[in-house]
Simulated scan of single mutants.
Amino acid sequence: MAQASIGDSEFDRDTAVTLRAPGTYDAELSAGWTIIHAVNGGYLLAMLGRALGDALPHADPFTVSAHYLTASAPGPAVIRTELVRAGRTLSTGQASLFQYAEDGTEVERIRVLASYGDLDALTDDVRTTAKPPVIPPIEYCFGPEDGPAPIPGSSAITDRLRLKLDPATCGWAVGAPSGKGEMRGWFGLADGRDADPLSLLLAVDALPPTGFELGLKGWVPTVELTVHVRCRPAPGPLRVSITTRNLAGGFLEEDTEVWDTADRLVAQSRQLARAPRV
């Protein structure tokens, strides 16, 4: 099978938006990116990110902050964007995704505030103490096909991803969670499409939740997610590391780092999520 290219892949088709009027876009949320019947938050963020990249003077997401207001469902949606400020190096805008209730009224699903720029114009100066996560080679990691049974309702999105998890963070899959809030693995799209800034918005929210390794079961819905895109990723699979240090009051945070094949930190994120009720 030929490898899909950026701009011509299932991910691109399923995050496509159509301009209806200035700042307003029609979209179709695909059922192929669902987890237990809910549309994945990273996929939704990528779709909103595509609309903002078209609407703003700059094309590349630098920082994107989203509040998830209500659960999205597969089907038609409307995205409304607004230019907040246009500068020389950064443009800031906001966007909201709406769907229709059974009575025909609009329901806001997500609201985003984002700043966009030109990743190719960034300097080469890097001063960091961050180090890539230590993950075994892909052939020694585990994918959904290696588990004893799929998570009910979760196969739609996993069929579209090439995920291989670090065995040290897979105890939950065999009923023996480590008790540590950690999840690590290799990430790619199933059709071989290389990563770009938009797919990084998906990558930060594509691995199983760290709550599984804490011994929690069930859906972990995102309340707020902020992503920083640091540079354009090199071709090849990404390494994703997620940690949770604090679960309190029924909420937990997930801090994510995404590294490319050139050992560069290409994206970071933090999200607040609601822990499953036990």
Rank of each mutant, 00 (worst) to 15 (best):
Ala16Arg: 14
Ala2Lys: 07
Gln271Phe: 07
Gly147Asn: 00
Pro177Met: 05
Pro148Arg: 04
Phe142Ile: 11
Leu238Met: 15
Ser9His: 02
Val227Ala: 11
Ala121Tyr: 06
Arg85Phe: 03
Asp12Gln: 02
Ile35Gly: 04
Leu52Asn: 05
Tyr140Asp: 13
Thr256Asp: 08
Ala267Asp: 11
Gly250Arg: 09
Ala51Val: 02
Ser9Phe: 03
Leu113Val: 14
Glu224Cys: 10
Gly49His: 00
Leu201Glu: 12
Phe98Gln: 06
Gln94Glu: 14
Ile110Glu: 02
Glu224Val: 12
Ala55Pro: 00
Gly75Glu: 11
Pro144Asn: 02
Met47Ala: 07
Thr158Trp: 13
Trp33Asn: 05
Pro133Gly: 01
Gly218Met: 08
Leu119Lys: 09
Gly75Ser: 06
Ala21Cys: 00
Ala71Asp: 12
Arg184Tyr: 12
Asp159Arg: 14
Val107Lys: 13
Ala4Asn: 00
Pro136Val: 01
Ala267Lys: 10
Pro144Met: 07
Ala71Phe: 10
Leu122Tyr: 01
Thr158Ile: 10
Ala173Val: 10
Ser178Gly: 04
Pro177Ser: 06
Arg20His: 11
Ile138Tyr: 04
Asp118Thr: 10
Leu252Glu: 09
Gly236Glu: 15
Gly49Asp: 02
Thr89Gln: 10
Asp118Trp: 04
Phe251Cys: 13
Leu83Thr: 15
Ala16Asn: 12
Ala55Lys: 00
Gly192Gln: 04
Asp159Glu: 15
Asp60Phe: 01
Gly49Ser: 02
Asp196His: 10
Gly53Cys: 08
Gly53Ile: 03
Val126Thr: 12
Thr15Leu: 08
Asn246Met: 13
Ala16Cys: 07
Val258Pro: 03
Gly41Met: 02
Val227Gly: 04
Trp172Lys: 01
Leu247Ala: 14
Pro276Tyr: 12
Cys170Lys: 06
Asp14Thr: 12
Ala86Tyr: 05
Pro152Gly: 06
Val107Trp: 02
Trp33Asp: 02
Gly175Ala: 03
Arg264Asp: 12
Arg264Tyr: 09
Lys131His: 06
Gly7Thr: 09
Leu56Asn: 02
Thr129Trp: 03
Pro237Lys: 10
Ser241Gly: 14
Thr129Ser: 09
Gly42Lys: 03
Gly23Pro: 03
Leu214Met: 15
Ile6Asn: 13
Arg13Ala: 09
Glu139Arg: 14
Asp205Ser: 08
Gln3Arg: 14
Arg193Gly: 05
Leu163Glu: 10
Thr226Cys: 00
Glu145His: 13
Arg230Cys: 10
Gly171Asp: 05
Ala262Thr: 08
Pro233Ile: 11
Tyr140His: 14
Met47Ser: 05
Leu272Trp: 14
Ala114Asp: 04
Phe11Leu: 05
Gly42Cys: 06
Val39Thr: 12
Ala121Asn: 09
Leu189Pro: 02
Gly215Gln: 09
Pro209Lys: 07
Thr244Arg: 08
Pro235Gly: 11
Glu82Leu: 12
Pro74Asp: 09
Leu122Ala: 06
Asp146Glu: 03
Val84Gly: 05
Ile35Ser: 07
Tyr140Met: 10
Val134Gly: 00
Asp120Arg: 14
Pro137Ala: 13
Val223Asn: 07
Tyr140Trp: 03
Gly53Tyr: 03
Leu69Thr: 13
Pro137Trp: 01
